[in-house]
């Protein structure tokens, strides 16, 4: 196995390691003679690891690079630079053909259950397709049996196999999306905003289902979301991203009890609490301005243009992410 030498983390424990990951998308100009005019730094030099069996929450606002990070891990987008080590193997350098058998072990659940299921396929066809593609004959049984099993695992009636996606509600469709991810018995699943498109009354059902499945099949999740209350509920550790960079990483409880980075603090304070009495007493840090363009990010600390505690130095020097408290890293010179 391609084990890199500078590995400081215990790879026994971590199923996945991301090191110095970068993904830049080119901006072209001109209609015919296309030339690259600039780069969108969607993900800009991030590192973290995911332990076997845990849920790592990845939070940030739209455009912060959290979805791109998920896609780069699965090699759905090829990284510009950096390493993605899945059980010690660097996926970023692997050829497509070599990747294919590994893809069985890494799956994804998408945000929108409306556009991620083929409307012309029955639920049964959708669920048996990955099994057919990977030519896994589950214990010599018929595909139909496996499909029925998958459906009941996610809490759907096996008779749903004959239906089409449009006949299902949003919550039921997301269950199908989850069943499809489970079809190949993966070890690791990227959940990309899996409940954001669902009705409030259904969100808790899906969260509970994801937790049950994790326990039952020993799954590891990368849970991408923008809602910090949901992320706190489901994650063991949390990574906060802003404009393509990781600004803070900590265990769940530590992050919510002692948030260090001013961006994390602002995110936490923006989460509404369904109780007028609590809200009346609550101080809100309302961030000014908006997320700058990743085409032209601010110099120095990427957050300094919106930061309530920024000083002169912040606009000159890029803060290193460092361990400020035990197992709690933040990229801010003011903490």
């Amino acid at each position: 196995m391609a084990q890199t030498q500078n590995s400081t983390l215990n790879t026994q424990n971590s199923i996945l390691e991301v090191r110095g990951l970068k993904k830049y998308f080119p901006i072209y100009s001109g209609l015919f003679a296309q030339r690259v005019e600039g780069w969108v730094r969607a993900v800009d030099d991030i590192s973290f690891s995911i332990r076997r069996g845990e849920t790592l929450g990845l939070v940030g606002e739209s455009g912060c690079g959290k979805t791109t990070t998920g896609r780069c891990i699965l090699q759905l987008d090829r990284p510009t630079a950096g390493e993605v080590l899945f059980e010690g193997q660097n996926l970023a350098r692997m050829a497509d053909a070599a990747l294919r058998p590994l893809r069985r072990q890494m799956q994804i659940v998408f945000q929108d259950p409306y556009s991620s299921l083929n409307p012309r396929m029955t639920i049964g066809q959708i669920l048996s397709e990955p099994i057919r593609v990977h030519r896994i004959s589950p214990d010599g049984r018929r595909y139909e049996d496996r499909v029925a099993e998958l459906l009941s695992v996610v809490g759907l009636n096996p008779l749903m196999a004959g239906r089409y996606p449009h006949e299902l509600s949003g919550g039921q469709r997301q269950r199908v999306g989850i069943a499809r991810a489970l079809a190949l018995e993966p070890k690791f699943i990227v959940c990309d905003e899996p409940i954001s498109a669902l009705d409030v009354s259904i969100q808790a059902q899906i969260l509970n289902l994801l937790e049950e499945l994790q326990e039952r099949f020993g799954l590891t999740y990368l849970f991408i979301a923008h809602d910090l209350s949901v992320v706190r509920h489901i994650s063991d550790r949390i990574v906060v991203m802003y404009l393509g960079k990781v600004v803070e990483i900590a265990d769940r409880q530590e992050l919510y009890e002692n948030p260090l980075h001013p961006y994390t603090k602002a995110l936490l304070s923006a989460v509404p609490i369904p109780d007028p009495l609590v809200e009346a007493k609550r101080e809100r840090v309302v961030l000014g301005g908006e997320v700058p363009s990743p085409l032209n990010p601010p110099h120095g600390c990427i957050f300094h243009s919106r930061c309530p505690i920024a000083v002169e130095e912040c606009s000159q020097r890029v803060p290193e992410i460092r361990e400020v408290r035990p197992n709690h890293r933040a990229a801010c010179i003011r903490v």
Partner: peptide, 8 residues
């Protein structure tokens, strides 16, 4: 009210 996780 009961189904949503609450930060507080």
């Amino acid at each position: 009210l009961r189904s949503v996780p609450r930060l507080d």
